[in-house]
């Protein structure tokens, strides 16, 4: 792979997958440990097995820009995102390690605000922040602050939930409105900025996942962060080798998210959410799971949006508002506004 890294390689779409496959998957020899889930699964995290437990890990780098945005900041995002990645594997988050790197000259007041947000998000799910690192880079060598965070969770052995668990006949639900975080960020971007009440939905959603797990029918879960809903659904369809059908009328969006997507020529299915999950659940337990989720703090607007079939494995098909059908593709790079 010659040439240079572009922003699109970091957007969580096909280009990101190419980099991960070419530079990591193909290079590393040992890709799993202690009989656990490893790199090959390319899931939200990995695991190791002990006598009767499965310990789940996730790691992510948070480089959001701007670092303070309507509805949150990079601190809340780092802790919530880490808690959510661990939750997506069906594991109860118990600990977080974080590495904070700041640029020389970064204000301590801002650092305090960010760390307070980390504290609040962790305390919402009573997860311990057990270890970390703090580094400073010379002025101009880093854009303000970057936070890397590793999450640790536990589940009973064999109870881990992977993207490859969806079964034909299952129902597909989302735990709330899609694309809020994406629009909140874009509204601040120079050259395309606009006013809106849309706030980022950044939140630790273990309580939602826990409620769903209690019902007992969860087969697969994915948080629609980078790559949006289209990315998450395609990943589940590919890894489970199933077809996913969604009904566009059922997908919950806040109205300003659709307004912003249409004004800028963006697909609402590629916009980020940072406090939502796609959950694939056994058909018989779908309604019950939905009701339990709706009782939780972050699951009030959950909806069943479609179902799993087998005719075209690896495909996501959408029955559109106009009644037609089309393929919902995995995004290639980052969403870029267009006029045509």
């Amino acid at each position: 792979m010659d040439g240079k890294v572009t922003l699109s390689h970091g957007a969580g779409g096909e280009l990101t997958f190419e980099v991960v496959k070419r530079f990591f998957l193909e290079k590393f020899l040992h890709r799993s440990a202690m009989d656990g889930v490893g790199l090959d699964a390319l899931d939200d995290g990995a695991s190791i097995k002990t006598k009767n437990l499965e310990i789940v890990f996730s790691i992510d780098n948070y480089t959001v820009n701007p670092i303070f945005f309507p509805g949150g900041d990079i601190g809340r995002l780092a802790v919530s995102g880490t808690i959510n990645d661990v939750s997506m594997l069906g594991a109860k988050p118990v600990a977080i390690l974080d590495a904070v790197t700041v640029e020389e000259g970064f204000s301590f007041n801002d650092l305090e605000l960010i760390v307070n947000s980390m504290k609040e998000a962790a305390e919402e799910v009573d997860v311990a922040i057990v270890s970390g690192d703090f580094k400073v880079m010379p002025k101009g060598k880093l854009d303000k602050i970057v936070i890397a965070a590793c999450g640790v969770g536990v589940t009973e052995k064999g109870k881990i939930i992977l993207d490859s668990g969806a079964k034909p006949g299952d129902k597909v639900l989302v735990t709330g409105t899609i694309g809020d975080h994406g629009v909140a960020l874009i509204s601040k971007r120079e050259g395309i900025e606009f006013e809106t009440e849309i706030m980022s939905d950044t939140a630790p959603i273990w309580c939602v996942v826990e409620a769903a797990l209690k019902v007992g029918g969860v087969h697969a879960m994915k948080d629609p962060t980078r790559g949006g809903l289209a990315g998450a659904l395609n990943e589940i369809a590919e890894k489970s080798k199933v077809t996913i059908y969604v009904n566009e009328e059922k997908i919950p969006f806040k109205e300003p998210v659709i307004a912003a997507a249409e004004m800028l020529g963006l697909s609402p299915y590629e916009l980020l959410s940072e406090g939502k999950a796609v959950i694939v659940v056994d058909r018989e337990l779908a309604e019950e799971t939905l009701n339990e989720i709706k009782k939780t703090k972050y699951g009030k607007e959950a909806e069943i949006i479609g179902e799993v079939r087998r005719e075209k494995p690896g495909y996501v098909l959408i029955n559109t508002l106009a009644g037609g059908t089309r393929i919902l593709e995995k995004p290639i790079g980052e969403p870029i506004p267009r006029i045509c």
Binding site: G3, K4, V5, T6, L7, S8, E190, G191, I192, M263, L264, G265, G333, I336, P337, R338, I339, C340
Partner: peptide, 27 residues
């Protein structure tokens, strides 16, 4: 945004941006 990934003779505006030049998408 429509124009940033269009390859001309050998590169696109997005690749020029990744070389450190200032290319901005506007509405």
């Amino acid at each position: 945004g429509d124009m940033v990934r269009v390859p001309a003779l050998n590169k696109s505006l997005w690749e020029v941006k990744s070389e450190g030049f200032d290319v901005k998408v506007v509405y």
